[in-house]
């Protein structure tokens, strides 16, 4: 029964060499892109290139392309879960009320109406540069 089933798959060594060269090219590409300031796109490109490299390694070096559905389920499922963890935590962080001032504005507004108004203006003026520092305070 076991004899008609083959043990593993053999690929041409040229495939391995080609994959290695491809990985080198992608490494150069990702380093090159890091010299450009693309804002958030830098992160996206970095992750996208890394994913391409990972795909190459899984498919060819790890013989992923010969593997069955069960194995692929165990390749995908942890990735989905990491995404879920990130998604869930980010859902929290992106919407979290980081500063108790925001919550308590009405009370402080009643007590010291003038000051509270000034404070708000300050925040708006300083814009992005101040953002880090204000988060700084609130996290402490």
């Amino acid at each position: 029964m076991g004899h008609d089933r083959k043990m593993g798959h053999v690929q041409s060594p040229k495939v391995y060499l080609g994959v290695l060269l491809g990985l080198f090219v992608l490494t150069v590409a990702t380093v090159a892109v890091s010299y450009l300031d693309l804002g958030v796109l830098n992160d996206v490109v970095a992750i996208a290139v890394a994913s391409c490299k990972a795909t190459l390694v899984i498919l060819f070096f790890m013989h992923g392309r010969f593997e069955d559905r069960i194995t692929w389920a165990f390749i995908w499922y942890p990735l989905v879960l990491v995404g879920l963890l990130l998604g869930g935590v980010f859902l929290d962080y992106a919407n979290r009320v980081t500063s108790m001032q925001d919550v308590m504005t009405p009370i402080s507004a009643v007590e010291t109406a003038g000051e509270a108004g000034d404070h708000k203006e300050e925040k708006a003026d300083d814009g992005e540069e101040q953002k880090d520092e204000s988060q700084d305070e609130s996290n402490y």
């Binding site: 879960l81 879920l84 869930g88 859902l91 929290d92 962080y93 992106a94 919407n95 979290r96 009320v97």
Partner: peptide
């Protein structure tokens, strides 16, 4: 795997997270 957030309802988690 989708429900862990319900342990954090009163931990200062964001409104949308709690809702979802």
């Amino acid at each position: 795997f989708f429900v862990w957030g319900h342990h954090l309802f009163v931990s200062g988690m964001s409104y949308w997270s709690r809702w979802i």
